[in-house]
């Protein structure tokens, strides 16, 4: 049964490697990392699947957006992560393509006293490329480039700092991240 396969074959080391990739991506916005080991059902990408296997569990309310809210993805995540599925407003993680994740104002951005209580959005992309939008800020020595679905939303998100959403972009087995601290300008 496909719902039972496609998770890490050796969970502890593979999750560790996937997390290292996520850590490096979040620490250096715009750099593209590779994550391997997960084979989730479509439309969930291998990178997003690995990320959820590494970070999601029964303690993390998860929102499935658009086409990602399908029986195959639900069954796979329920079996391997056990994360409860919730509406956007209550989500700690959300996964979907950019169009279905919008509007972003539905997601928690944290509170002044607990800015960490904000959602992390896993954005499925057709491809990742180090081109396009110009990124500056923590983790970036001079500037980085990353192809983003749009510019305005990320500028508005950065203006909320220290509140805000954090983003992971996934395509195939590739992963990049954009925390709220990154300043985004049109390339």
């Amino acid at each position: 049964m496909s719902g039972l396969s496609g998770a890490f074959a050796d969970p502890a080391p593979e999750a560790a490697r996937a997390f290292r990739a996520a850590l490096r991506a979040m620490a250096r916005p715009g750099t593209i990392e590779r994550v391997e080991g997960a084979a989730p059902p479509a439309p969930l990408s291998p990178a997003a699947g690995a990320l959820l296997l590494t970070l999601a569990d029964p303690e993390t309310p998860l929102h499935l957006a658009g086409a990602w809210d399908c029986e195959a993805v639900r069954a796979w995540l329920t079996f391997h992560c056990g994360a409860p599925f919730v509406p956007a407003e209550r989500a700690m993680f959300a996964v979907g393509d950019w169009a279905s994740l919008r509007p972003l104002s539905r997601f928690a951005v944290g509170t002044a006293e607990y800015p960490d209580r904000s959602a992390t959005l896993i954005v499925e992309m057709a491809a990742l490329a180090a081109a396009g939008a110009r990124l500056t800020g923590p983790g970036i020595e001079r500037e980085a480039r990353l192809l983003l679905p749009e510019i305005d939303a990320f500028q508005a998100n950065a203006a909320l700092f220290p509140l805000g959403l954090d983003f992971c972009f996934c395509a195939g087995d590739r992963l990049a991240a954009l925390p709220r601290t990154t300043r985004v300008e049109a390339g």
Binding site: A22, L23, M26, A27, L55, D116, G139, P179, R180, T181
Partner: peptide, 11 residues
């Protein structure tokens, strides 16, 4: 790990 990613996002 979740705490570490949020920590990096809010230096």
């Amino acid at each position: 790990r979740r705490a570490l990613l949020k920590a990096l996002a809010i230096p």
